[in-house]
Design a protein around this nucleic acid. Sequence first.
DNA 1: GTAACTGCAAAATGTTTGCAACGAT
DNA 2: ATCGTTGCAAACATTTTGCAGTTAC
Lengths: 140, 140
Amino acid sequence: MDGAIIFRQYLKRKNLRETVERRTILAEVRSLHKHFTVDDLQFRFRKRRRTVSRATLYRTLIHLVESGLVRKLDLGQREAIFEYQFNHAHHEHMICLKCGKVIEFTNHEMERLQEAACRARRFRAVRHYLQILGYCRGCR
Amino acid sequence: MDGAIIFRQYLKRKNLRETVERRTILAEVRSLHKHFTVDDLQFRFRKRRRTVSRATLYRTLIHLVESGLVRKLDLGQREAIFEYQFNHAHHEHMICLKCGKVIEFTNHEMERLQEAACRARRFRAVRHYLQILGYCRGCR
DNA sequence: GTAACTGCAAAATGTTTGCAACGAT
DNA sequence: ATCGTTGCAAACATTTTGCAGTTAC
């Protein structure tokens, strides 16, 4: 199933409207295929002489996160980082403190342990991430 | 070995001075035995008619984190959360989105997997945390 | 036609910084 | 005496919000 349809259904369910801005933002996010910030989005729109206000970007991202199409990472420094995640496998992150590079990796055993830990504590997880901050091969 | 001594050594090594404020903040942090925010600290000092400025709290926390005595968690919402971690085993966090409760747990196998992942990618980790956001037993 | 949405600018939030007075060494 | 430290207030960076005009339904 397509991300655009998921979003349409989400909007309908919440009695929200499908506007040009919301469609444009989702399309941009899907075309990015990597991590992005609110600034990144705004810059890309401006380059194409298509402006969407900062407020609308923030407001729409809240909905995209809520609909499950986008994941928000809080790395603590500077702005929040987002990524389109529909149909992508859940993955973990290593972030280089020097060059900012983000290394993604998947580990099924780690996934399994996380699920087991939640089950043992009757915790219903809605979002989880492992973040490893440090220095990558080139920067160490 | 004692946290106060570790901090003293750290300060000396960095050519920083051991002031009343720094000693007071570390003592408070150690006596807390749980997660805290900058606001929490300021409030506790004010209650005891002992004021330490916000700027000094922020500046001292940077040193405490750097010295390894305190860990900073970026949960993305609102302010940063800190915890005294000297002599505590590294642990993971589950955070309840409704009641704010923080459940800590340790899993050696998970630790091992994290270390292996870093080794495989020649990544030197300085800080890593697994954060699971969701709903705890009482709030689900 | 109604209620939601947008852009703007202002406000709010959390953190950092410049500076003059102060204090540890 | 020197140079790091403090508190204050101002600056900063990011995100949120109030409002008046606009648009989807």
